[in-house]
């Protein structure tokens, strides 16, 4: 069967007269409509942001709704930080803000001027991996690898905080990072290795 893609004469007349009518709406009505729109619908707001990520300064313009996670992945292209649940439940998006572990999915980027952010990309020293990264490889601290950047950022903070006194303490202080593959034993071993 042949599908007719052309528009009928009637459709053309109807639609073009509708558009013509729109042009005759008085300016006052249009400005009234715009005023109503301004009043009841908040426009997207973009604001300038200077932020330091992995010791590099960035001058950006961001939508107020942008989370740090989306800023890293979408605006800057640092895709090492992973989006798991996007609701603060899984820890895959863990980064350091001024040295402390935080969830980037629940952090609004606009709240960050002047703060120093470290992501998984900022952990290694050139080609030399961070000792925690080495430990994860050595101890099979992952399987599929999706939660790993968050696990490693959290593990580095866990050691720095000194919560590595026992296996139980490590598990308690790593509970904010879920691993669907359940590589927990390898993760715990990696942390023990670095802590001692």
């Amino acid at each position: 069967m042949k599908i007719n893609h052309s528009y009928s004469r009637r459709f053309f007349i109807k639609s073009s007269s509708a558009f013509a009518a729109l042009a005759f709406i008085p300016l006052t009505v249009r400005s009234f409509f715009n005023e109503v729109k301004e009043k009841y619908f908040v426009k997207k707001q973009k604001i300038p942001l200077s932020v330091s990520i992995n010791k590099k300064e960035y001058q950006l313009e961001v939508d107020t709704r942008t989370t740090l996670l989306d800023l890293l992945r979408e605006n800057i292209g640092l895709t090492g930080t992973k989006k798991g649940c996007d609701h603060g439940q899984c820890g895959a998006c863990t980064v350091h803000i001024d040295g402390d572990r935080n969830l980037s999915c629940l952090t609004l980027a606009v709240m960050l001027p002047g703060r120093e952010i470290t992501t998984i990309e900022g952990l290694a020293d050139g080609d030399k991996l961070h000792p925690m990264q080495e430990a994860f490889i050595e101890n099979d601290g992952f399987q599929c690898g999706y939660c790993t950047p968050g696990q490693i950022m959290s593990a580095v903070a866990c050691v720095k905080e000194g919560h590595t006194g026992s296996v139980e303490e490590i598990k308690e202080y790593m509970s904010g990072n879920l691993c669907r593959c359940a590589a927990y034993n390898g993760i715990t071993k990696s942390i023990q290795q670095i802590a001692t």
Binding site: G88, G91, T94, D100, R101, N102, L103, L106, T107, S154, A157, C158, E161, H163, Y173, S175, G176, N177
Partner: peptide, 9 residues
């Protein structure tokens, strides 16, 4: 309560 990350924030 919560996790270390959330308590930090």
């Amino acid at each position: 309560g919560a996790s270390p990350q959330i308590r930090n924030m």
